[in-house]
Design a protein around this nucleic acid. Structure first.
Lengths: 198, 198, 198, 198
DNA sequence: TATGAATGAGGTTTCATTCAT
DNA sequence: AATGAATGAAACCTCATTCAT
């Protein structure tokens, strides 16, 4: 009967937000921004539509919030490559493995949806410009340059090499993040052939 | 005073159907089956909504018709690899080039949409089962086996090799068929590294 | 190659109008004014929609024209009762038989539709006021009065008697003019019990 | 602060459903299934179109639901004839009175619409087969047979007699359930002449 | 905080009507 | 006289969003 105290309320709010985030990322990634219905998200999160709107003013705001989170996570994942042990190629192998690991796919798919769908709010467009592929290339450039110097990676314009490699990985993730069995995710070693010298 | 004769009518109908097909494939490929609005398709085709329904009973029927056409074209493109000149690897290079060539992308994207979207009519689901990746693997198997025998391709399970290669190509096409500049389509020679021995 | 002469044209026009009338009365009677589609009427008449509009400016005009014809026929049928041989009750039996005879049902149903449907043009409303049940009662009044005088019909207000009798006949016709087997059209002798003395 | 409790929600839902039922039965009975517009029903019920679809998935489902209810009510009304006091003919007089009483007319009209209209959902067709006139004849057969035995009803095939009588009553109801003043509903005693011996 | 009833804008589809030939 | 392609208004239905409790 007693009202919740502030801490409890705060905790409830955090839990709800997490529930909603998790439900929304699933639904958006699977259905795309237009096919994703607010009612579906509410149902998946196990709450009412009303409560959904209590936490997020609109579908757009919810989507923006998810994209922000996804971009932060993705950037962090890429940045953390430098913390990994081993030579350049070993770091790249580890990064590739992690990217293809299914756990990150919904995040990635979300960003892909954001890039390619219609009806994406302006705010998301701006966000995406900041987190363009170029920014990821910037992060990875030292790693690839080092790899080229030690002969672990093929020669050539390193920015171009990174762009091609990330594009291919992106393609695989998009393919993979829909539940289609038909496609076969290539082994990491196969993909590394793209960038290692004969 | 006389009405159109049969030939004229036939010609008009064919032209309109072609107009609609062409408009619809663009719109569906870019937006997906749900986001694609019949009004958009009509506008793109330069006709009224009403006329659209004169030629196709429903959005679903239009979509099914496009998928059928796209699948036939895609299969034909893959089958025709054997008519190309040159050794195995040269044939594969030519096929890869053709696949990545943007002209076929909308067709491909349409099939991708059909595989991954919600709200796809049952009839399309059945069609897609017939045109699974396995069926394409069947077509390409002799080519890849020959390539392996003459040492132009890497060793290993050829079906798996084809599956991986097609998955990677598919990913690139999906990425590419939205109008995103950010991604960089890799050069064919880079992709061939995936399947050629060092 | 020679153009039709005036007589031939006139004949063609009359034939077409008759074709259309006949088709339209069927379709309107069966489907009601809204469910009846101009395309159905054209198809039933074996002509194109365009030609239909060549003969009748609109669906409304076609409907009005049919109702006018139906009312004229119905009135004539009732008036002609006096030309029939026999006593009052025999005349009424003959009229009843003719009314229930299925051939007139579409005409009757059309008038019923006109009375009860929405979307009936104003002009039809005015026509119907002129051809109200009262006008039919006026026609039949001398016959029923004579029947009462000679003791062939039950006593009482003759206008009321006619109104009740026509209402019952109308009900049967409406029921009968849809293709429902479930209902059973009563025998004329049974109906005459309503108005003959014990 | 708290949401409605279950009882309140239940009550609201029941009220709305009743509102909608009542509005829909009026509109369908008067206009038929095609002419009846969902917007009309919503307006008559004093609610928005959206809410209508919150309670009934589609126009068809709403129509089916009404027909089910109407058939149950009609059957119950006929079955309850045996609970009435008096001799056979008195029971039949009471039943006839009740049937012609205007309150039941919309229910009846709805079933008539269901039987005769186009565009009636398959499910309704099946329902109607179960509630054919034969089933009503079965219910009334003992009553009419008893009436014949005691000489209150005319002799002859009792099933046929019931079929004719119900057809005539049906006709009157159909005529009566549209708002036409022109027709005059016969007195019950007049109708009973159809089935009582001289 | 939490619910679900309620609304209305927007999309799909139908069909009376027009028009070029 | 005759055809059928073409149009657009209006109907059905969905769903993001609001609101009373």
């Amino acid at each position: 009967m007693a009202p919740f105290n502030d801490d409890q309320l705060h905790q409830i709010r955090d839990e709800r937000r997490e529930q909603i985030n998790s439900a929304a990322i699933q639904v958006f990634a699977r259905k795309g921004i237009i096919s994703a219905k607010m009612s579906m998200i509410a149902e998946t999160a196990g709450i009412s539509k009303g409560l959904l709107y209590h936490y997020f003013k609109s579908k757009d705001e919810l989507f923006v919030s998810l994209v922000e989170e996804a971009m932060a996570e993705t950037e962090e994942a890429i940045r953390s490559v430098y913390k990994l042990p081993g030579t350049s190629i070993e770091k790249i192998r580890a990064l590739t493995t992690e990217i293809l690991d299914e756990s990150g796919a919904p995040y990635f798919m979300l960003i892909h949806q954001a890039r390619t769908s219609d009806g994406v709010p302006e705010k998301v467009k701006h966000l995406l410009e900041q987190y363009s592929m170029d920014s990821f290339i910037d992060v990875l450039l030292p790693l690839f340059q080092e790899g080229q110097q030690v002969g672990e990676l093929v020669a050539g314009d390193p920015r171009e090499l990174i762009a091609y490699y990330l594009t291919i990985l992106s393609g695989i993730m998009v393919i993979n993040s829909n539940g289609i069995d038909d496609y076969r995710i290539p082994k990491v070693d196969m993909l590394l052939r793209l960038i290692t010298p004969f």
